[in-house]
């Protein structure tokens, strides 16, 4: 499984989001690759899920990859809930 965390430049908020996602994967014992990408290259990178903020989610939706929008990129509860919902679908 590959998860892509996306932000404007690929190393600020996406890196924070990656850290949050990795914490949850670790706690759940799930193995997955989590990578970061900037908005402009995100759509050309293979991934199972894209996690990003609401703004970019709106623009990235509609492709093959399931896009998940996150309001608070460091909120473990919110990101855990989002991850659980996509893993269960």
């Amino acid at each position: 499984m590959k998860i892509l965390a996306v932000c404007g430049m690929g190393f600020g908020s996406s890196m924070m989001l990656k850290m949050t996602i990795e914490k949850i994967l670790k706690e759940k014992g799930i193995t997955a690759d989590v990578e970061t990408a900037d908005f402009t290259t995100a759509s050309s990178i293979y991934a199972d899920f894209i996690f990003t903020n609401e703004e970019f989610a709106k623009q990235l939706e509609g492709g093959k990859v399931k896009v998940v929008s996150v309001k608070n990129i460091a909120d473990l509860n919110e990101v855990r809930g989002a991850l659980e919902s996509v893993l269960n679908t």
Binding site: C7, G8, M9, S13, M16, F39, N53, E55, F56, K71, N72, I73, A74, D75
Partner: peptide
Amino acid sequence: RNIHELGPYILIAP
């Protein structure tokens, strides 16, 4: 410039 180009993406939490 980045915000003008990419929009209000810099919100990291409410």
